[in-house]
Simulated scan of single mutants.
Amino acid sequence: MSRRFLGPLLGLLLVSANAGAAPAALPAPEATSDGWPVADPARLGWDTAKLEEIAARIAARDLKGVTSVLVADHGRLVYEHYFNGGARDTLNDMRSATKTLTAVLVGAAIDRGRIPDVSARVYPYFRDLAPLRNADPRKDAFTLEDLLTMSSLWECDDENPFSSGNEERMYVTEHWLRFALELPIKGFAPWMAKPADSPYGRAFSYCTAASFVAGAVVERATRQPLDAFAAQVLEKPLGIARSQWSRSPDGVAMGGGGARYSSRDIARIGAMLADGGRWQGKPVISQRWVEAMLTPRAQARDDADYGYQIWRFRYAQDGREQAVWAMSGNGGNYVFVLPERGLVAVVTSRAYNQRDSHPQSQALFRELILAAAPAAAQVPAPR
């Protein structure tokens, strides 16, 4: 038999064998000195046979490119496995999941009085770059909230290769800030929904340049690089010792993508969001800001809304619709957050620029993690 078919066949045989066997005990993740409590998933009511399918389907190559899957239940790791060269100390390129981190840092700056609120006007932070091309009085009204909700009037759409603001055009310029700030005002073609006709009164258009500018506002407001501010207000309180952030050619930290974190550390950020801004009972970001982030602000697609730089997917689960918040990045990199169930799941993947990478990670979460989760924690969460 061809080797090309041997691996998938063995994986399928493994799945079939497991289907008829009694569920094997799934051990709790390894307890280390990094501060993550761990728990036996079976004791918390998890369907461990369903969790075991994750490794089987990755071995069968039904799920491709996945490098890690972690699950936390009310602040305790209950599942942690690495695949395809992934490891606990790997700094994963989370791509656009970085955008959610930038929104968290906007909130940290607001908490500290460095930025007044989300209604702060954007262009006054960059007066030193004047004069700017494509000046328009409507730009004077642009707010941080417009950027955080992907609903500014810049002609910027990463999903349209012809868009003036498509991120690939920005990357080949020398001055990313000037590129973004000089974008023209967009017009609305007959098939495009105008803000007044859109749910939440905002017309969504995915724009990495907007996230980059939001991060630059934080840099200007705090007078320090975005990654340094992140280390101070987010990473140190969470016990995160290692990360990497990308920079533009002119030295501005990239708030729109490319931040690298280990799977356990990016899970801490998800757990902090799930617990209203707290990590192990201690406040990191104000609950008010986390609640603001996790409020639908724009309709991104028919099946998804958008908060402040974070997606809200709607899945059918147990005969009803289940809303799930998610940090999302190219390649299928995700941090899923379900606050009312205390559930956080991390999926890292290197399936970059593959059309199926996002549906694959979402299916993994929906069909294998969410389906395996108990209705509620069976053991009180640690405090």
Rank of each mutant, 00 (worst) to 15 (best):
I310H: 05
S198N: 04
A97K: 10
A377W: 00
M94F: 12
S164F: 14
D89R: 00
G258A: 05
V233G: 11
G319S: 12
A189C: 06
D302K: 13
Y315R: 01
A274F: 08
L91V: 11
K99N: 14
E80S: 03
Q244N: 15
H358R: 09
P27H: 02
V379P: 13
N353V: 12
A228E: 15
P237K: 15
F336I: 01
R260H: 15
A39M: 11
R220T: 04
R57Y: 08
A97N: 08
D250C: 05
G113I: 04
A49S: 01
N333P: 10
Y334A: 06
W245N: 13
P161K: 15
A210R: 12
K186R: 10
A39W: 12
A323D: 06
A363G: 09
A230E: 14
D318M: 01
V104L: 12
F126W: 02
P283A: 10
T143I: 03
L144Q: 06
S286D: 02
V122C: 05
P382C: 06
G251M: 03
P359Q: 11
D89Q: 08
L101E: 14
L226I: 14
R383N: 10
P339T: 09
E53H: 03
T98I: 07
F5V: 15
G281A: 10
F162N: 15
F313P: 07
A274E: 11
S16G: 12
G277Q: 00
R268N: 13
Q299T: 11
A376V: 15
Y261S: 14
A209Y: 13
V290M: 05
L13Q: 14
R297F: 06
L91G: 09
